[in-house]
Design a protein around this nucleic acid. Structure first.
Length: 312
DNA sequence: ATGGTAGCTAGGCTA
């Protein structure tokens, strides 16, 4: 089942492989914020700088216009998406292939679903990391991980299980899922210490007290519990560093704000979306940004995109 | 103690 979906989910651009031409413009500073010349379709072949981003979009169909505009405005090369919230046959691929992106996605239901868009090549698509545990056949807990090699970087778009509540069976599933991810990701570095790997997405964990606006609110909640934080640290200890934090120091730098209770205007958020990079990837990181602007206005996702620049 | 909002999909579940 999964294998068939895998092939059905991938829509490679036929005229450009992983080593293909990159297009018309060099990398811009993230803070420049200007539209890419030539419609933002690619980069020159004279450098291998890559702008990588991750975004929990809370439905790709309702967010497609916004994502398209943002990709062009920020001149992003590779975007990992979470909570696409659509089946594979519903994914609006054409919106992105029209901009020069190759698209890989997997979604089984109205919940979750992950994707990777890339205009610097997209190869070796893998649905689910090796050893990934599953919650029976429940569609609510499927479609959580997709890996693809983009411009020499192995990118994993991850949607870590939410956990729901400390006494909910989904919480134990979340911890098992994270343990399996750590085990697998540690193995990749054992096999190749120089591997360029990015573990990106919605981790549903706030690793430090500074990563929520008020710890008292979360006293009995998931996302901040010590076992979850230990599971996150274990991935970091396996060699995957938070490459954003050095460029976005806290407190008060969040990536998610609940739709309810005016959390965004009150600046009451959580930092739960991360780009964790292998040593070789971390060494290339030159700049990072949480694009809080994208949380503003009508039709925003409840998450902001997180962007990382990798040097050539 | 509940509700607040958004999305999918047509009553309730998930986040």
């Amino acid at each position: 089942m999964r294998g068939e979906r895998h092939l059905a989910a991938v829509c490679p651009s036929d005229e450009r492989g992983p080593e293909g031409p990159r297009g018309a413009t060099g990398p811009q500073r993230l803070d420049a914020g200007r539209a890419a010349p030539g419609g933002g379709v690619g980069r020159q072949a004279d450098n291998d700088a890559v702008r990588l981003a991750t975004w929990n979009v809370n439905s790709i169909r309702s967010r497609a216009d916004r994502v398209v505009a943002w990709l062009q405005r920020r001149d992003v090369d590779v975007l990992a998406l979470q909570e696409t919230k659509c089946r594979d046959d519903q994914f609006p691929e054409d919106r992105f292939t029209a901009l020069g992106y190759e698209v890989a996605h997997v979604g089984h239901s109205q919940w979750n679903g992950v994707a990777v868009l890339s205009r610097v090549g997209l190869a070796d698509v893998t649905i689910d990391f090796p050893g990934q545990p599953h919650w029976g056949d429940s569609p609510a807990t499927e479609a959580r991980a997709l890996g693809a090699t983009c411009g020499g970087v192995r990118v994993w778009s991850l949607y870590v299980p939410n956990g729901r509540a400390l006494d909910d069976p989904h919480y134990q599933y979340k911890l098992q899922w994270l343990a399996a991810l750590r085990e697998t990701a540690a193995g990749w570095l054992a096999d190749d210490p120089g591997a360029q790997v990015a573990l990106v997405g919605d981790w549903n964990i706030a690793p430090q007290d500074d990563d929520v606006w008020d710890m008292r609110v979360f006293a009995t909640s998931t996302h901040v519990s010590e076992p979850e934080r230990a599971a996150f640290r274990a991935v970091v200890d396996a060699g995957y560093a938070d490459v954003v934090r050095p460029h976005a120091p806290g407190p008060g730098v969040y990536t998610y704000w609940d739709y309810t209770q005016l959390r965004f205007p009150r600046r009451e958020g959580m930092r739960i979306d991360f780009v964790l990079g292998s040593p070789a990837l971390a060494a290339r990181t030159t700049y990072a940004l949480v694009d809080r602007e994208e949380r503003k206005g009508k039709g925003a996702s409840d998450h902001a995109p997180v962007v990382v620049d990798l040097a050539d």
